[in-house]
């Protein structure tokens, strides 16, 4: 049996003890193990933040990029070599502040990658600044009098942007998270997982305890029809976004399926030397 060990490397994470990101890392490794993915065909791409370090902690190809840009890089990789399993990852600031534009368009574009947001509702790496997902009145170094804006609702934004797979996990519910990651990877198209991954150092409000008290589990909700867009919207509103499980899963045409038949052969295998076409191509200009 493939074990988590296969995906571990010898780099020691720089995360604080107790950081929720450890569990996301382990869940991803466990999901990879259960899917028995080849290490060399697994590509992790991450942004900048405490969370962004994750791509350095797996025995896979790992691309730790720049703040907010994990998604375009991941999409470029997948479009070029669709045989890779591509996982993009990053923080809530990475995906919903500086990179929001890419998040929306990646969802709309529907390339077959999995996007895991390690959401701690704060900027961990900059040592505690507010995030677009921070609650109203949240006190941080940049909002010493309390944050006066309302938070963005990532699940609603994902639904509105056309993501065909929208789920939420919680670092403390590892089994469920592993299961969600497996389903997300298996989903053909863009899949989005918002993981509540507590920052034990800078977020003293949204703690493990707080989440345990507030989260409901959609897996236990027998009325929940995850194939219904309408129901997904309602469920999100009803729970105030405080749930774990798969909110929405509906297959849409994946980007490669929309491309013409000429794209059957991945770019990576295309023959680059087309000098025999030169005479034909120059004709357009004569």
């Amino acid at each position: 049996m493939t074990t988590v060990k296969k995906y571990q490397n010898d780099v020691t994470p720089t995360w604080c003890p107790g950081c929720g990101d450890f569990s996301v890392l382990r869940s991803l490794q466990a999901a990879a193990a259960r899917l028995n993915l080849d290490n060399h065909n697994l590509m992790t791409v991450s942004g900048i933040g405490c969370s962004g370090r994750i791509s350095g902690y797996l025995k896979t190809y790992g691309f730790h990029s720049i703040h907010g840009r994990a998604l375009p890089i991941a999409q470029g990789i997948k479009l070029t070599n669709p045989e890779l399993t591509v996982i993009a990852m990053g923080g809530d600031g990475d995906g919903f502040a500086i990179g929001t534009n890419h998040t929306i368009h990646a969802m709309k574009r529907n390339i077959d990658i999995t996007y895991i947001v390690m959401n701690n509702q704060i900027y961990g790496l900059t040592k505690g600044h507010t995030s677009p997902l921070s609650e109203k009145n949240f006190v941080t170094k940049s909002t010493p009098y309390g944050h006066i804006e309302d938070p963005l609702r990532p699940g609603l934004l994902a639904l509105a942007s056309g993501s065909g797979f929208v789920a939420q996990g919680f670092s403390a519910y590892q089994e469920q998270l592993i299961d969600i990651i497996i389903k997300a990877i298996n989903h053909k198209g863009f899949s989005f997982i918002n993981v509540f991954s507590p920052c034990v150092t800078f977020n003293k409000v949204n703690t493990y305890q707080w989440f345990r008290e507030h989260l409901v589990n959609l897996d236990e909700d027998s009325d929940h029809d995850k194939t219904s867009f309408q129901n997904a919207m309602n469920k999100y509103i009803e729970t105030g976004g405080l749930f774990t499980g798969i909110l929405y899963e509906n297959k849409q045409m994946e980007y490669h399926e929309r491309l013409s038949k000429k794209h059957k052969t991945p770019i990576i295998y295309q023959n680059l030397d087309i000098s025999e076409s030169f005479d034909k191509l120059i004709e357009d200009f004569i």
Partner: peptide
């Protein structure tokens, strides 16, 4: 793409992957 930041970084992803 949605903007030039995506244009350069997506191209970088593609190049990294071998195109």
């Amino acid at each position: 793409t949605e903007d030039e930041i995506a244009a350069i970084t997506m191209s970088l992803g593609s190049s990294y992957a071998g195109s």
